[in-house]
Design a protein around this nucleic acid. Sequence first.
DNA 1: AACAATTATGAAATAAAATTTCATTTTTTC
DNA 2: GAAAAAATGAAATTTTATTTCATAATTGTT
Lengths: 282, 282
Amino acid sequence: MNILEKIANELDTLSKSERKVAEVILSSPSTVIHSSIAALAKQANISEPTVNRFCRRLDTKGYPDFKLHLAQSLANGTPYVNRHVDENDSAEEYTDKIFESTMASLELARKNLDASLINRSVDVLTQANKISFFGLGASAIVAHDAQNKFFRFNVPVVYFDDILMQRMSAINSRQGDVVIVISHTGRTKSLVEVASLAKENDATVIGITTKDTPLAKECSIVLSVEVAEDTDLYMPMSSRIAQLALVDVLATGFTLRRGSKFRDNLKKVKDSLRSSRFERKD
Amino acid sequence: MNILEKIANELDTLSKSERKVAEVILSSPSTVIHSSIAALAKQANISEPTVNRFCRRLDTKGYPDFKLHLAQSLANGTPYVNRHVDENDSAEEYTDKIFESTMASLELARKNLDASLINRSVDVLTQANKISFFGLGASAIVAHDAQNKFFRFNVPVVYFDDILMQRMSAINSRQGDVVIVISHTGRTKSLVEVASLAKENDATVIGITTKDTPLAKECSIVLSVEVAEDTDLYMPMSSRIAQLALVDVLATGFTLRRGSKFRDNLKKVKDSLRSSRFERKD
DNA sequence: AACAATTATGAAATAAAATTTCATTTTTTC
DNA sequence: GAAAAAATGAAATTTTATTTCATAATTGTT
């Protein structure tokens, strides 16, 4: 956790003198990482032991260790922590903010992914007779992308972003089929029904969604993609990017599992696209 | 600059003993930030002054200062430097690698984006009579996503992932129309032709592609998305994620430019989706 | 309000860590 | 292969951080 936030949070747990230290640090953290304990004590008008006690209260080993933590927090720029787009942002500002929050989502999603579930999903996928990807709205793009990827593997794969087609396809599914339902909210009624139908018809249902949601309940395997709440109006659905990365992971796992012969084949597909392109001159 | 890279770069400028220090540091940097100069010296089987000299050679003030730099480099992940998926990777390993390289691509793309071009693109988009997004293969997903986003803004927007439809649409374009062509390679013949047709018919052509490519040459504005070469067979096309983030940026810029009344409207669209969802219980 | 108990604080002492100095060793150059 | 240059580490010094302990401030109790 970012130590600057931690200082800000614990500000009221601190004693009067310690708070002085905290204030000096918060007001110019980048100066502090180049100050000795004596310099900081003087700046805050308190004694050196107080600085030391302050550091320990923040669960660091001492002053040098505290500086290390501080340096790390500063290295991250500030990014992560919700940097929402503001009405008066310049192009440069909102560009940076969007890229940063997208990266933050990926980081969060990665931390919360369960590798063993990925493994099980890959197991199931490699043994599937047919793979279907279903999503609506923003998640339709993810399903579309997934189809694109798995299509190259030369396995029967379909994707639908239409409720009726999804239903029909779900009803016709059978044992050995894998249905992957994608929804950020996990609360889209029609998709929950589709998942339920697929399940009733003995398909294995994998959900790329948020855990503990109606949709998650219908799934055999839930690959939960944690993303910070997008309370912000301007905030783009970064959940979909985390979902796409997850699809990449599944596709990669699939390729690895299928072994080297299979991968040669994949290379051929790649090469076959060459003729549709202009040559490179380098 | 990242001090770990710097150490790696200057490895051959260093003396024999200093190189020993460098090797110990590179092999487990995270241990070093918690070691004293004495501990590190012992680990590398050299004396403390040597460590000190090593630090100064890297343009730091001394050992503590060096540790600060090191801590900052570590805070930024370490990931970056090409971590390709390997045949024998566990699910956890390839998951981490994919997420990390995706984030690295985003970081790289962000650094290379030109905010003034974003600004001009947003200018053009806000004044467009009609917006078309064209992409093929993996880039079709990006075009699809873009349509989804801009559709909510209640502007005339279409997307095609079919060559014929793209051609027809391009031929029918006129002054005031904006065509956004998306291609990672910038060398897909049919898309270059489509861009050229659109241009001939007075549409403004914005390219989300790599600069200095045949496609880039046909565009009025090139939003170049730099991504590390994906030399790796397993490497997923992280370019498309950078492209998606860029679409987010354009959409955000669009929203901001259109002013507050417009944003109220956007919120209504969001709310209108509510009835199609299961209620939250929290 | 007066007192005891608790907590906070800093001066001084101590300990730890980093740096400098300088003599010795190793390497390079001619 | 000798002289010069560079590299290295032992020991001394300096700087920095931490601990100890006495004092001061605060809090709670009657």
